[in-house]
């Protein structure tokens, strides 16, 4: 069948391109998650802070980036980034318009959104750490930084795991929107393949299936990680 050939790895096949697109989607999402982790931790810290200004800033961040369409955030980062890069370029003597690299724009935009969700995850996880255990760490003379590193952070990461799984799925799907910047990730590659072969249905179904493969695979990874943590960490027995 011709259609099978189109999905294959031969000269006329798009199979290889689609797999490359999958890799790109994974890379963008992964980078975004890392950017979001840094931003999310900062925003969570601000929201838990005693300073009213920091709390307000943190709250504004989460409200805006969880409430505004993802596409709009991608546009502002991509076009805004290009404007900044162009003016810096002109200062250095370059001429004309310089585009912001689409990978960086995409990862940054999805990362900023992911950060607003991760902030809530970390905040919830921190609040789930038993106050008494932090107090016990103080009572044995642990300095602030050591307390954070040895007692708070490991527990926050464990409590955050299910929430992070959700954020990963969300970011994976958001990354499809990065296709508007022209980055050849899975969505964009499906689009190009569909357009140039006129086999829209075939390639969008193929793209969709590959996304499903990615989401269910990562689901399993997170489920397994959670099960591992649950086995050692939380029993049902009474904790004080």
């Amino acid at each position: 069948m011709d259609q099978i050939m189109l999905l294959g790895f031969g000269t006329k096949g798009w199979g290889g391109m689609l797999l490359l697109g999958m890799v790109m989607t994974f890379l963008v999402t992964f980078t975004a998650l890392a950017i979001g982790a840094v931003l999310g931790a900062l925003v969570a810290w601000a929201r838990l802070s005693r300073s009213r200004l920091a709390r307000f800033g943190g709250e504004a961040y989460t409200t805006v980036f969880r409430g505004v369409p993802e596409l709009l955030v991608i546009y502002v980062v991509y076009f805004g980034g290009s404007t900044v890069v162009t003016s810096v370029g002109q200062l250095l003597g370059a001429e004309g318009f310089i585009g912001f690299p689409s990978f960086i724009a995409g990862a940054l935009a999805v990362g900023v959104i992911s950060g607003s969700y991760q902030a809530e995850v970390y905040r919830g996880a921190f609040q789930a750490v038993a106050r008494g255990e932090i107090e016990a760490a103080r009572s044995v003379g642990m300095p602030t930084l050591m307390r954070f590193r040895r007692i708070i952070a490991p527990q926050v990461m464990r409590f955050a795991l299910p929430g992070l799984g959700n954020v990963w799925q969300l970011s994976l799907k958001d990354s499809a929107l990065v296709s508007v910047t022209g980055l050849a990730e899975l969505m964009r590659t499906s689009q190009v393949a569909a357009g140039s072969t006129r086999q829209y249905f075939l390639f969008y179904i193929a793209g969709g299936v590959l996304y499903l493969v990615m989401t269910s695979l990562s689901n399993q990874v997170f489920d397994r990680a959670e099960a591992r943590v649950a086995r050692s960490f939380r029993g049902g027995l009474g904790r004080g």
């Binding site: 499809a176 969008y204 179904i205 969709g208």
Partner: peptide
């Protein structure tokens, strides 16, 4: 499990 954009294009 799949992005809305691909559903809409479909």
């Amino acid at each position: 499990g799949s992005p809305l954009l691909i559903q809409m294009f479909l």
